[in-house]
Each structure stands twice: as structure tokens, then as C-alpha cells.
Design a protein around this nucleic acid. Structure first.
Lengths: 333, 333
DNA sequence: CTGTTAGCGCCTTCAA
DNA sequence: TTGAAGGCGCTAACAG
């Protein structure tokens, strides 16, 4: 029995190569002040022992972990999944690791996770943080470097956001162009920043069209919120529904289909986000395509800039794109 | 200007409380051998300075990071997302963090990521690893502690897997019971372990039913694979299709609908996984519900056991459940 | 019960 | 160009 041989440390390599620790360190890090022959000898020794510098030890001395944290409200939401994916892939390309933290829509968790994860990483990206603005304002400085996704302009943190207001506005105009004059907005998480942006978009649309009516019905953010809203939708008398997101739209669509109500003949429905499944419902969903994975990518770029002491764009907006599919049509006479 | 005050370290707390570093360390870690009064004084000082032990430094000295890595083949796949979610939430409850690594279905990346992430964490969970068995066998010992999801029994790592074979078998029996005798299996990633399990299930079904025919058509794992398979499906003459997963089924369903072919009247389709959207297609998809998030949870439990030097179950299987919805019916005469 | 003394594994001045 | 020495911030013997 040779026993379980422990992983090789820098000392082992130094010994095998017959040099000092410092030389090994320098060689491993490609420091040009090392004699090429010596460096080669060191690298060979390292290879032979399968040596790689312990990342934790490096992190301690260098003060950086090559890792960033992403705090998201709900790992179950397709949009957040897409953001995470874009972010993760972009960060990986730059040699960074990603620590995820799912706050499960819990405000206290969100606050706590941001702080905890920040300490073991080089920066944190807050995705659609649910906490109120004053809390966020107080938290951001303690988290620096930090990037925020989907909130308004912030002091002390670059923001990358989708323009929810503009997108909703396009959706509304599409419906108006089709001839609808009585819409119903199914409101989702009122804590989300996009809620505010949407309210404003609605107000502006109302101001622009004298004969337009837009009712609002509080709903939620998932399938079930959509199915649960069916009664309210039918009672409202609206000819078209603006769902908070595609999930809600799908839930509603499914419930209406079950009840024998035909979409879009009897009622038009639009979703929001354009999750991958929106194209596969019957009828396929008219929606606004939020470039979620690109949002994640941009957020990483902002973080990357911060990490390199560069000046990132303080506030950038990505425009969702109107996708007209089969769930909208002119109202029936 | 007081300047940017650096984060408080253990020394600052020691100074403020008028004790030694060790006492602060002990107090902070709830070591009972500290005089209660002193401990209180230390905690107060820590609180005043907003002190929390640097996790990186602790990791170095303690030899553990309170973090585990999860390597998955594709962050875009709903099933992996669900596994990740279950795992992440379970780990969080036990005070662990999760580092994610998306190999983007790249074999070399998968191998590399496993090693890299392992070094900055206390263990790694390999989710549906794509690498061949001999490579996996060679890799596992270098990764210990390690847990594997969705592969066959392994030496040196507990495995948590869904019983794909049994589930496919149920799907087939359902179709046979409906009267189908000519099925078509749309094969997905042949590198996935579940592919093998499914082949076996098909073989057994064939052995049990003399008059049954099951053709196989290579496809892929996403929507597009489903739409692309439409021609082949139609040409096959089969009356029912076993899609590799719900995504493929949805792609196919959508394409057939576009072509005016009615499901399930003219053709039955079954999916696999029961992703959240499977219930919202038209018709809703008959499928096998793989308890993905529970798979993640179980994987965490196995890892947790390993981390505590306990003996985890070496191989456990979760049974998907047959979900009969509207996409299957008897074949038309 | 508390303080002093070594490290954890590595990088980086500082001399030589 | 290389080696020796001193930390990074914390925990854990080991004495007192």
C-alpha cells in the first residue's frame, strides 16, 4: 500500500524541480523574469505531479476569487433561467465562475444572499431585485462591485434593463391597430420594477387614445395565475388581454380553451417575454421578445468592466421586440 | 474625509474588544470555552464593526468552502434547470453555496469544468455527464466527493437516476393498450445514458408483444429536432410517436399542426420529462413525469452524506410517472 | 478560560 | 535571475 497520495503542493514541485517556491510560483504564472530553461523544468515537474495552484490559497493572497455571484428571485422562471444562462456563458468565456443564489422570491433571503455571496466572490449581480428602492440604495455600496438587472437607474451600480414600458406600448398599439378598444391588463408582481414601467406605458397609451379603455386586474406571475384570472377576464368585457408574462398568458389560454372560448376569434391574448414555449401553444402567442440571455451577457460585460476598473455604461436598455403570432386578431363584431 | 474605511478584520474586533485574536475567533464560532461575558463583548464589538469572518480565509484554513459545484450539459434544457433548482434549494437550506458550470454539451468542457470547479469547492455533482463510461470511471476518483445524476451504477460515486427504461416502458404499454402496433421512437442524444436504458426498454417491449413494431429515427433534443423529424414521422407509417423528450414532442406537434395533421386523431405523440409546459400545448402532451427537481434534491442529499463522511445510498432510482393527457388516442382505422 | 505561536498554500516585495 | 522572508485572514494546537 502506497496509501492515498495527497495532492501535490507548490513545495513538492519546487523540490522535484530543485528550485525555490518563488520560482515555481513565477514559472507557473508565466512571469517573464524566469530563465526559460528553468521555467520549462518547473512546468515539467508540475505536469508530472499534476500540480495546479490551489485556487483558494490564491484567492486569499490575491484578493480575488475569479467568481461572481448572481442573485435571482426564482430559478423556476424561464426568463431568469435565460438571463442566468447568458451570464454564465459569458463569464465562463472570460475565465470566471458563477455562484448562484435563488432567493425564492423572499425579500429577506434576497438581502442576505447578496451580502453572503458577495464575500466569497469578486462581485455580485442582482437580477430583478425585489427589494424596495431605499433598501437597494442602501445595499448597493456595501456590495460593490455590483451590477443590477431590470431596475431603474441606480447610484453606484451599472444597470442593464429591458425596456418593459416601450414593449408593452408596442403590444398595446398592435392591439389598437387591430381594432381593440377595451383591453385588460393582468398585473403580476407589483414589487417588480417592470410593473411601474408598465403602468406608465398604459397611462401614456390612454392619453394618446381617447376611445381606449384599459382595465387592470391583479394576477400573478405563473400559469395558475392565468387560469385563475379566467373569470375576471370574461367578466371584464375586454376584447383583448395583456398578460403579465407568457406563463400567465399560457395559463389563461389553456383555461379558456377548456371552456370552449376561442382565441383569438372571441378574445385576443398577448404574453410577454417570448419564452421558448410561446411559439408552441395553440394558437402561438403574440408577445414581446425580451432578449433575456443577452441581458445576462450585458450584465456580465458591465461586471467585467467594473472588475477591470473600467467605466461601464451606467444604464443601458435592451428593447424587446414585438412578435405577432396567432393569439391576436381583430375583435369580433 | 475619513476615506474609504476598509472592511473590519478579526484584528480590529480583537482590538476593540480588548482581547486576543483567538478569543474573537472562538467567540464568533460559538466555542463554549469562552467566558460568556467576554463572548458578549466580542460579539458586540463585531456587530459594531460589522465584522464577519472572511470566508476565503476560513476556507483555506478549514479546508472547506461550503460550496459545491454542479456541472450540467445545457443550462437551456428545462429538465436540467429543474434539477439545478432542486439541488440549489436543498443545498442552500443546509448552508451550502452552489457553483454552476454549463458545459454547453461540449465533452472537453465537461471534463475540464469538473476538475476546475472541484478545486474551489468541497465536491462536485455531475449531471447527466455526456462523457463515455471509461472516461467517467477514470475521472470520478479524482473528483471525490462526487455524485452522479442520471447514469448507471458507478464505482466510487453515488448515483441518483430517473428510471428512463421503466418510464418508456409505461409509455409504450399505454400506447399498446390504446391499440397501437406500429410505433416510432425519436432517439435523442445517443451519448446520454438514458438512451441505452430506452433501447433496452424497447427491446423488452418488442419481446413481450409479437405483433408490435417499433422503428427508430435519430433526432435530437430540442424543438427543432421535432419539427425536422416531421417528414420521417409521416413516412414511417407509424401510428404513434415516442419523442425523446417533451421539447421534441412539442416541435413535432407544432409542425404537424401546421401541416394540418390532427393529433391525436391521425397520430398519437408522447413526450418525456413532463416539463411545466407539457400541460399547455394543444392537445396537452401525454408524457412521463420525471421528478427532476427531486432528482436534484436527492443528489444534494447524497453529497451532503459524503461531506459528513456518511455512507450514502450507492444507487437510487426515481420512477417517472405516466401522465396521460390529450395527445394520445386509439389509432384511426 | 485566554493568549501566544504556528501554520493553511500561495504570491510578492526585498536582497543577493 | 533567483531565494528568503513576510504576509493574505483566520483557526487550532499548545501553553499559561
Amino acid at each position: 500500500m502506497t496509501g492515498a497520495s495527497k495532492r501535490a503542493g507548490i513545495t513538492d514541485v519546487a523540490k522535484l524541480a530543485g528550485v525555490s517556491l518563488s520560482t515555481v510560483s513565477r514559472a507557473m504564472n508565466g512571469n517573464p523574469t524566469v530563465d526559460p530553461a528553468l521555467a520549462a523544468r518547473v512546468l515539467a515537474a508540475a505536469q508530472e505531479l499534476g500540480y495546479t495552484a490551489n485556487p483558494v490559497a490564491r484567492s486569499l493572497v490575491l484578493g480575488r476569487t475569479q467568481t461572481v455571484a448572481v442573485v435571482i428571485p426564482d430559478l423556476e422562471n424561464p426568463t431568469f433561467q435565460a438571463i442566468l444562462r447568458g451570464l454564465s456563458r459569458a463569464a465562463t468565456l472570460d475565465g470566471y465562475h458563477v455562484l448562484i443564489a435563488d432567493s425564492v422570491e423572499d425579500l429577506a433571503e434576497e438581502r442576505a444572499l447578496a451580502g453572503t455571496t458577495r464575500r466569497r466572490t469578486d462581485g455580485v449581480i442582482l437580477c430583478s431585485p425585489r427589494m424596495p428602492q431605499d433598501e437597494l440604495t442602501a445595499l448597493l455600496p456595501t456590495l460593490s462591485p455590483v451590477v443590477v438587472i431590470n431596475r431603474g437607474v441606480q447610484d453606484g451600480a451599472p444597470v442593464v434593463a429591458a425596456d418593459y414600458g416601450a414593449a408593452l406600448r408596442e403590444l398595446i398599439e398592435h392591439l389598437v391597430a387591430e381594432g381593440h378598444r377595451h383591453l385588460l391588463y393582468l398585473a403580476g408582481s407589483t414589487r417588480s420594477a417592470s410593473h411601474v414601467a408598465r403602468q406608465e406605458a398604459i397611462a401614456r397609451a390612454l392619453a394618446d387614445h381617447d376611445d381606449l379603455v384599459i382595465d387592470e386586474l391583479p394576477a400573478g406571475v405563473g400559469f395558475d395565475s392565468g387560469t385563475a384570472a379566467a373569470d375576471g377576464v370574461l367578466d371584464s368585457g375586454a376584447t383583448a388581454v395583456l398578460a403579465f408574462n407568457d406563463l400567465v398568458a399560457m395559463g389563461l389560454l389553456s383555461e379558456l380553451t377548456t371552456r370552449g372560448i376561442r382565441v383569438p376569434e372571441q378574445l385576443s391574448i398577448v404574453g410577454f417575454d417570448d419564452i421558448p414555449f410561446a411559439a408552441y401553444t395553440s394558437p402561438p402567442l403574440t408577445t414581446a421578445a425580451v432578449p433575456a440571455s443577452e441581458l445576462g451577457e450585458r450584465a456580465w460585460q458591465a461586471m467585467q468592466a467594473l472588475l477591470q476598473d473600467e467605466e461601464p455604461t451606467p444604464f443601458q436598455t435592451l428593447s424587446p421586440q414585438l412578435i405577432v403570432r396567432g393569439s391576436t386578431a381583430p375583435p369580433h363584431a
